Amino acid sequence: MQVISGKVEKAKKVVVYGPEGIGKSSLAGQFPRPVFIDTEGSTTEMNVDRLPKPSSWEMLRQQVEWVKQQGSRFGTLVIDTIDWAEMLCVEGICAKHGKKGIEDFGYGNGYVYAKEEFGRFLNLLSDVVDAGIHIVLVAHAQIIKFEQPDEMGAYDRYQLKLGKKTSSQTAPLVKEWADMVLFINYKTFSVAADQKGTKHKGQGGMRTVYTTHHPAWDAKNRHGLPDEIPLDYAHIAHIFNGAGAPVAPPTSPPQTYAAPPMPTQASAPADSTPPPHPTTAAATTAPPELDPNIPPSLRDLMIQHQVTKTDIQIVVSKKGYYPMDTPITNYDPGFVQGVLVGAWPQVHNMIKDFKANLPF
């Protein structure tokens, strides 16, 4: 057996959460060479690299897989926000099992499915970390009533704003998975508003990052940070800029790279124009043969994997679901979401196998 001594430098797993509009995304944008998966479309005013907004849980997983394969092109993968990503997860589970909501499973089974699926997603993010890419999960905060088992009474505290029905399952997973949980809030002071001290008002409002656990919020770090620091990336930059070769600061101007493969016209010569920027790539638009009325969650996957409507119709007809000439837009929405989108890896493999066995 091999014994490994001392510190092991590797990419970090970070959760950043706080109230809306406080600057969570702006802080994440200062991490080494970030690329955003913007699940809620809130980074349009930021000058950052981003992938198209995922329209399904499967598309989000495909995007994470693509970032993992890029090696040292990116230093940080930012998922903004993880609570919106969880909604995609729940929608994907319900569609796959033909349910309208997470409670339709009965006996709490839906929450178990959500926990297991979210756990697999965190394992996928850990694979990205092993590839030398930092992970930053941005989340909103919510105030909940909390009561400790060994104390009398209850009090309010901030927690991750994951699903109202599923947060008790998924929030602990996220906090346990992370190396660092940073809570951002406005630091205010209560001062007396009258001479008797019976009325108070809030003053201050400096944006502050809390790095350690407190009865009023969740936070942690393993780097000896002060309990409170200003909302300034410079105070934590030393943790990430030296975490391994794949995330070292670039010595030349940053380059841009194409997003996950989309169907395009004939390929240009290798030494012609540089690859398109992921936010402006022409490949993000659908080819003419794709009906714009196809559900976006399926249409986005078809574009990403260069799958035509005929490819879908062939495999669907071979499985006996619909006749070959049935338009995709006439498919039952539950079939589209639960079978074609929910089991997209299997559907895509069937398409590839069919094409590989063509006689020409």
Score class of each variant (00 low, 15 high):
residue 202 G to E: 14
residue 150 D to M: 05
residue 198 T to N: 15
residue 172 P to A: 11
residue 86 E to P: 00
residue 137 L to D: 02
residue 332 D to R: 04
residue 143 I to A: 09
residue 8 V to M: 00
residue 240 F to N: 06
residue 320 G to P: 03
residue 188 T to G: 02
residue 291 D to A: 02
residue 344 W to M: 05
residue 286 A to F: 14
residue 158 Y to R: 11
residue 101 G to E: 06
residue 221 N to G: 09
residue 135 I to M: 06
residue 147 E to Q: 14
residue 167 S to Y: 10
residue 8 V to A: 01
residue 261 P to M: 03
residue 62 Q to V: 07
residue 317 S to G: 10
residue 53 K to C: 11
residue 168 S to A: 15
residue 323 P to C: 00
residue 183 F to C: 02
residue 67 V to R: 05
residue 235 H to W: 09
residue 89 C to T: 13
residue 12 K to R: 15
residue 117 E to R: 15
residue 144 I to W: 01
residue 45 E to I: 08
residue 19 P to Y: 03
residue 348 H to M: 01
residue 301 L to W: 04
residue 157 R to V: 00
residue 8 V to D: 00
residue 337 Q to W: 03
residue 161 K to S: 13
residue 304 Q to S: 13
residue 17 Y to W: 09
residue 314 I to W: 11
residue 299 R to K: 15
residue 165 K to Y: 08
residue 247 V to E: 01
residue 40 E to G: 05
residue 131 A to M: 03
residue 109 N to P: 00
residue 82 I to Q: 02
residue 186 Y to F: 14
residue 172 P to S: 12
residue 101 G to V: 01
residue 190 S to K: 14
residue 208 T to D: 00
residue 258 A to T: 14
residue 213 H to Y: 13
residue 208 T to C: 04
residue 149 P to H: 02
residue 31 F to C: 06
residue 45 E to G: 15
residue 206 M to D: 13
residue 124 L to A: 11
residue 155 Y to Q: 00
residue 128 V to C: 01
residue 164 K to V: 07
residue 239 I to Y: 07
residue 161 K to G: 04
residue 103 E to H: 08
residue 275 P to H: 04
residue 207 R to N: 01
residue 350 M to W: 10
residue 27 L to M: 13
residue 102 I to Q: 06
residue 308 T to M: 09
residue 12 K to S: 12
residue 284 T to K: 06
residue 265 Q to G: 15
residue 128 V to R: 02
residue 101 G to H: 06
residue 151 E to T: 10
residue 156 D to Y: 05
residue 193 A to M: 09
residue 230 P to Y: 08
residue 226 P to Q: 08
residue 225 L to R: 10
residue 218 D to C: 04
residue 80 D to K: 09
residue 328 I to K: 13
residue 357 N to E: 15
residue 313 Q to V: 12
residue 352 K to N: 08
residue 152 M to H: 05
residue 85 A to D: 04
residue 109 N to D: 12
residue 4 I to N: 07
residue 231 L to V: 05
residue 130 D to K: 14
residue 15 V to P: 13
residue 98 G to C: 13
residue 230 P to K: 08
residue 102 I to L: 13
residue 226 P to F: 05
residue 12 K to Q: 14
residue 197 G to L: 10
residue 324 M to C: 01
residue 28 A to K: 04
residue 236 I to N: 05
residue 45 E to V: 11
residue 99 K to I: 12
residue 285 T to W: 06
residue 67 V to E: 09
residue 274 P to C: 01
residue 135 I to W: 07
residue 299 R to N: 04
residue 282 A to K: 14
residue 81 T to D: 00
residue 157 R to I: 00
residue 86 E to G: 04
residue 252 S to H: 13
residue 196 K to H: 09
residue 351 I to S: 01
residue 17 Y to A: 03
residue 312 I to D: 06
residue 163 G to E: 03
residue 47 N to A: 15
residue 226 P to C: 09
